[in-house]
Design a protein around this nucleic acid. Structure first.
Lengths: 368, 368
DNA sequence: CCGGATAGTTCAGATACTATACGAACCATG
DNA sequence: CATGGTTCGTATAGTATCTGAACTATCCGG
């Protein structure tokens, strides 16, 4: 997903980079003619034409009718990203349900399905069967709606190795050592696997309140408080994959003992089970976010999960941060509420696929 | 007719990337033959040969004698990075002195000069004159020692725009709106300019305790407490350039009022003027670093400035972090003491030049 | 209807890579 | 000492991509 920068480049890498830039430009700055695109990404018209032809052969862009009338000279032919007709499948296994969604290139959640049912102590094979069923249904509906799915990924509530796609342990599901590659065959493509914790941030980046931002912090409130850190468009996973644990930022060094071995973690003061009032939650959040803001100086903070429910908390936190941070009065850090629902992890899983596609459009086969 | 191709030659980007990888490989993994280098960076032998020739023409590497005897087959010719014969100039203006140093490609500080003298309320032209003098002396000595300086940079204690190299304000110097480009002419190259706050982290990355690390946090103790965040080899500057302000991470929400508008910042509990005992300093540091570690999950924490003086503080913090963080008992975050002296910012300034050179070796001209 | 302007295509030239072949240098073995 | 095996480095051919300039296509205004 996050491009490994220290790797050998062949000549195709230049092509991939240009294709990526062109596609992102179309998505973020809107449709344009080949000549305009050439100026946007800094290549010649000849190159831009070749790139457009390449992306068109992968069905990632579509050629519109003539346009840009009014100005003198030959009008250009607008090309647009196929934001509506290309998408990715996102899956999510939770304790009491299974979710499938399809997110398109433009970041719209087009299809969303939930199947309730207790997944705890259920044999993995049975649950994976449910996942397969709901995934197939979503794919079928996507096909019917004219969305071509270029891949998919699965979010699991446990410790996984995304490269081998092996699940080591999922405490809440009571699962141990499950091989998740078997879903590939049923779906027809290689299903990515990732931990659900950080996926919320990616979901916000691609389809939520953080679209267009480069650096932001995502905080998801629930029984525990999790989060994700996106710096310069890339998710920070940390050396052991533990980054973004905002729930364990210190709020009060004399606070209650936490399972992490520390005292006064944010989770204990603002988690759903803490019984705190909105004022107290806002206060605790502010104290924790003060540290975060001074550390990474983000463009915005996105509040998700239960924290997104209350406009009051958001307002209070924003105001308090304005008062209590160094650059706060001059250039305050924005505080936004997530607009995504409860299926963030599934959407985030789809976002990993979309990110990969945007970073390297050649992953999409040259189809008819 | 200095006709430098201003056009974005994107094929050259591949070349630059390969040159960069090869040079970094030589520095980090040691000298090697062309064939070994080809395998290391993932290109063919022919390409590796061409890359070696290119770097040699820039005097960035030197060809050693034959070697790798013992094994069967024709022995390769070792090439090594010219770690000791190429360097960069680092300059620093402080309140009561001016510093110049030369750091070589291998990360060794080869030359270091300080000129004491009160720079407050002195007209900038006078101070810049001192800087010029000490810089020229350092460059002359570097030349005498056989070090070719490929560039230089200046660290200033104020708000600057590195792109225009204009100093807006330096509160402690009582400077306002100073143009720093005038030093170029005297030195013979374009002198980079940067704020001193984050440069310590870059110094540690290139020449200090963080050599070889990809993700770490640098904490510098003094009257105030500053720091820097390096994630995946890149310094995180933040949206407004305020990232890394570890001194304002919250230690006690009921602590003393801070100038930043908040309460209980680390700076107030562990700063040099706080009068805290080593135990108290370690305790405050631990509480602050708990938040940091849970947020970015770094490989190591580097304590610099006054904090590097005490082995006791380092030990305590390391032990407490082991106990009080999520992954601490399993994979503890290392705590190291800086091995650089008081001229960190100057060394960091030189490091910016070395980083740029390593990232794009074509910046170094093809010399005889 | 024609000139000016802009869009898109075509073609030659440059560059940097890969793949393969080949000579050079060294070791082991008969 | 001669021969074969192994590895190094270079040379050559082929491929992919970008650039630059020339060319065609299309629209606008007079």
């Amino acid at each position: 997903m996050t491009a490994v920068a220290r790797r050998s480049m062949n000549l195709g890498a230049v092509r991939r980079h240009h294709l990526s830039m062109l596609l992102e430009s179309l998505l973020q700055e809107g449709p344009a003619s080949r000549a305009v695109l050439a100026r946007r990404i800094g290549v010649t018209k000849a190159t831009a034409s070749a790139l457009v032809a390449d992306l068109a052969a992968r069905c990632l862009i579509i050629e519109g009718g003539a346009s840009s009338a009014g100005t003198s000279g030959r009008p250009g032919v607008e090309v647009a990203a196929a934001g509506w007709s290309v998408g990715a499948l996102g899956l999510q296994i939770e304790v009491d349900r299974v979710v499938a969604c399809v997110v398109d290139l433009a970041g719209a959640v087009r299809i969303e399905h939930r199947v309730d049912g207790d997944n705890r102590r259920t044999v993995p094979a049975r649950v994976l069967g449910r996942v397969e069923a709901v995934a197939k249904q979503a794919l079928a509906e996507a096909g019917a709606a004219g969305i071509r799915c270029v891949g998919g990924a699965l979010a699991v509530p446990g410790l996984v190795d995304p490269s081998t796609r092996a699940l080591f342990v999922a405490p809440n599901l009571h699962w141990l050592d499950v091989d998740l590659t078997r879903l590939d065959q049923a779906l027809g493509f290689e299903l990515g696997v990732d931990n659900e914790a950080n996926l919320g941030a990616l979901a916000e980046l691609r389809a939520g309140a953080a679209v267009g931002l480069r650096t932001f912090v995502y905080v998801s409130g629930g029984v525990g408080i999790g989060g994700g850190l996106v710096i310069d468009g890339a998710l920070v996973r940390g050396v052991h994959g533990f980054a973004g644990e905002i729930g364990h930022v210190v709020v009060d060094p004399n606070g209650p003992q936490c399972a992490c071995g520390s005292r006064g973690c944010l989770e204990a003061h603002a988690g759903t089970g803490s019984g705190a009032t909105p004022e107290q939650v806002a206060r605790a959040l502010t104290v924790a976010l003060r540290s975060v803001v001074h550390l990474v100086d983000p463009q915005a903070i996105i509040l998700g999960g239960d924290l997104a429910a209350s406009a009051e908390v958001t307002e209070r936190v924003a105001e308090q941060l304005r008062q209590e941070t160094l650059g706060g009065r001059w250039r305050p850090c924005e505080v936004r509420r997530s607009i995504l629902g409860t299926d963030v992890a599934a959407i985030g899983a789809a976002a990993t696929v979309l990110n990969a596609t945007l970073a390297d459009p050649t992953l999409v086969p040259l189809s008819a």
